[in-house]
């Protein structure tokens, strides 16, 4: 009796279902692709979101303060030295003026070093995996850090450049050789190092490179090599172009590498 009842009901419901047919919807895909829907969905469905500009602000907050301090120091040093040029006694009792731009050329490699080191903190402290899986991925973090500090660095260099012709009695070429070239050279040499090495070896190598660049410029000046290079027509602009392009290429390689985990600490598991 009950089974009959049940069969009746299933028959009934089955028939019912067959009575209610629906033509397929036509505008489903276009709706979900539409900008109206996407805009509304973005607001509600994904976690309450922060925009890129807010993200940049938060990253700025996490950049360590002494980076800004370093920039300030270099700027202050430039101003001070311009006002009170540093004179050292040379062996032959000649007062050799260590020109300001040359002193700066020795400091600027470390500015580049600081920026690149700051960007590479994720790698140094094992945060890469976590950052890679976040919504603003490691890639974004690196771009933010390099972008912020890079722009700040270039601003400093841009501010220093006009000081040459106006205060240091150096022509444009020489100023560029002392201010821009060390920066670009250091970048070109340290970026591949950060890409290929990790940990302590990397830090030591990068510091070494910056020191070498620094010393190179000092000796180049002392040996008059720098002055001769500046006098050679088009050499400095060519060098700037070459290292400029090289630095940009290296930067691109570095950032591209951050899109996936390339350093496998645990090859097991």
């Amino acid at each position: 009796m009950k089974r009959n009842h049940f069969k009746q009901k299933t028959l009934l419901t089955k028939t019912l279902r067959s009575l209610y047919t629906v033509p397929a919807p036509e505008r489903k895909d276009t709706f979900f692709q539409s900008s109206d829907y996407r805009a509304a969905a973005r607001e509600t469905l994904y976690s309450p979101r922060i925009s890129w500009s807010v993200f940049l602000q938060t990253q700025m907050h996490y950049i360590r303060k002494w980076n800004w301090l370093l920039t300030l120091c270099i700027f202050a040093a430039a101003i001070l030295l311009t006002l009170h040029p540093w004179q050292t006694p040379a062996p032959q009792e000649q007062l050799q003026e260590l020109s300001t731009p040359v002193i700066l050329s020795a400091c600027i490699p470390f500015l580049a070093l600081a920026t690149i080191a700051e960007a590479g903190r994720s790698a140094r402290f094992g945060m890469e995996e976590l950052e890679l899986s976040a919504r603003f991925s490691l890639h974004a973090v690196l771009c933010a850090r390099l972008g912020i500090l890079g722009v700040e660095n270039l601003l400093l260099l841009a501010v220093l450049m006009p000081l040459g012709p106006h205060f240091w009695e150096t022509d444009l070429s020489m100023t560029a050789a002392c201010i821009l070239l060390p920066y670009l050279l250091t970048c070109t040499l340290t970026l591949p190092a950060v890409r290929k090495l990790r940990g302590r070896d990397c830090t030591i190598l990068c510091t070494g490179i910056s020191a070498l660049v620094s010393v190179f410029f000092l000796t180049a000046y002392a040996a008059d090599f720098l002055t001769r290079a500046v006098d050679t027509p088009a050499l400095i602009p060519a060098a700037l172009l070459f290292f400029g392009v090289a630095a940009v290429l290296e930067l691109r390689k570095y950032i591209r590498q951050s899109e996936e985990l390339t350093w496998n600490f645990t090859l097991t598991g």
Binding site: G126, M127, S133, A134, R135, S137, F265, T266
Partner: peptide, 19 residues
């Protein structure tokens, strides 16, 4: 996609932290 990562939570086997 970013959409995918926004719904993802991951705990790696080993992770570091900023000092």
């Amino acid at each position: 996609t970013e959409e995918y990562r926004s719904i993802l939570g991951y705990l790696p086997q080993d992770f570091g932290y900023y000092p």
